[in-house]
Computed example of a mutant assay.
Amino acid sequence: MQVIFESRHASADALREEALGRVRFALRRLGAVVPRAKVMLTDVNGPRGGVDKHCLLEVKTEKAGVLVISSLASDWRTALDEGLGRLVRALKRALHRQHKPVRGRLPKLIAGEPG
């Protein structure tokens, strides 16, 4: 799995290796369906402080398409962790949807009628 990290903020660049490791750890079981993941960290309102650390996670999959999750928190680690949790849940949900049969199709196929 290829993980891409982008940030223009110096303090976010210091978290580069940790962020890459957390993404790989969170997606370790789903790595077969996720060829590429992208992490973007930005500071929304600069040095004024507050809840302004933005984490954007983008995952490209072959089956579920592209999933984009955005998270906002007061520090980088919290934004990344919250975003990763939501990303894993959304990815599992999207992949699970791919495996569900369409309702109403099974009885028609058993009865021999064309679907």
Score class of each variant (00 low, 15 high):
Gly31Asp: 14
Val68Thr: 03
Ala94Gly: 07
Ile69Ala: 01
Gly21Lys: 04
Arg36Ala: 15
Ala26Met: 14
Leu30Asp: 09
Gly31Ala: 15
Glu82Tyr: 08
Asp13Val: 08
Leu20Val: 14
Gly104Phe: 02
Gly31Gln: 08
Gly112Phe: 09
Leu27Asn: 04
Arg105Ala: 12
Gly49Lys: 10
Leu106Ser: 07
Arg105Ile: 14
Asn45Lys: 11
Ala111Asn: 06
Gly104Ser: 03
Ala64Trp: 07
Glu113Cys: 12
Lys108Met: 13
Ala79Thr: 10
Glu18Tyr: 11
Ile4Ser: 13
Gly50Lys: 09
Val23Asn: 02
Lys38Arg: 12
Gly49Tyr: 06
Gly46Asn: 08
Gly112Ile: 13
Val44Ile: 13
Glu62Leu: 09
Arg8Tyr: 03
Glu82Asp: 13
Glu58Lys: 01
Val88Met: 05
Pro35Asn: 01
Ala10Gln: 10
Ser71Met: 09
Glu62Asp: 13
Ala26Phe: 13
Gly31Glu: 15
Val51Asn: 10
His54Ser: 07
Val51Thr: 12
Thr61Asn: 03
Val44Pro: 04
Ala19Ile: 04
Ala94Lys: 11
Pro47Asn: 12
Ala79Ile: 04
Ala73Asp: 13
Ile4Thr: 15
Arg8Leu: 07
Val33Ile: 10
Ala90Asp: 07
Ala111Glu: 14
Phe25Glu: 08
Ala64Arg: 01
Glu6Cys: 09
Lys108Val: 15
Lys60Val: 15
Ala79His: 01
Ala19Asn: 03
Pro107Met: 07
Gly49Ser: 12
Leu106Lys: 08
Leu84Ala: 04
Gly115Glu: 12
Pro101Asn: 03
Gly31Arg: 11
Gly112Asp: 12
Glu82Thr: 03
Pro35Gln: 08
Leu27Ile: 00
Asp81Cys: 09
Val66His: 02
Lys108Ser: 12
Arg93Lys: 07
Asp81Arg: 06
Leu56Glu: 12
Ser11Met: 05
Phe5Lys: 00
Val44Arg: 09
Cys55Arg: 00
Pro107Trp: 02
His96Arg: 11
Leu15Thr: 02
Lys53Phe: 07
Pro107Ala: 05
His9Asn: 14
Val23Ala: 12
His9Glu: 15
Met1Asn: 05
Arg8His: 13
Gly50Arg: 06
Trp76Leu: 11
Glu62Tyr: 01
Arg93Met: 09
Phe25Trp: 01
Arg8Gln: 14
Ala90Leu: 02
Leu67Trp: 04
Glu18Asn: 07
Lys53Val: 08
Gly83His: 01
Thr61Gln: 01
Val44Thr: 05
Arg29Asp: 15
Arg48Ile: 12
Ala26Gly: 14
Val51Phe: 01
Leu27Lys: 04
Lys60Tyr: 13
Glu6Thr: 15
Leu80Tyr: 00
Gly112Lys: 07
Lys63Gly: 06
Ala64Phe: 03
Val88Asp: 01
Arg86Ile: 03
Pro35Glu: 03
Leu84Tyr: 05
Gly50His: 07
Lys100Val: 06
Val102Ile: 14
Arg105Gly: 00
Ser71Lys: 04
Gly112Pro: 10
Leu106Asp: 06
Lys60Met: 15
Thr42His: 02
Ala10Asn: 05
Ala94Gln: 12
Leu30Pro: 09
Phe25Asn: 05
Leu80Phe: 00
Asp52Trp: 06
Ala12Tyr: 07
Pro101Ile: 02
Glu6Leu: 13
Met1Phe: 07
Arg48Ser: 14
Ala12Asp: 08
Phe25Thr: 09
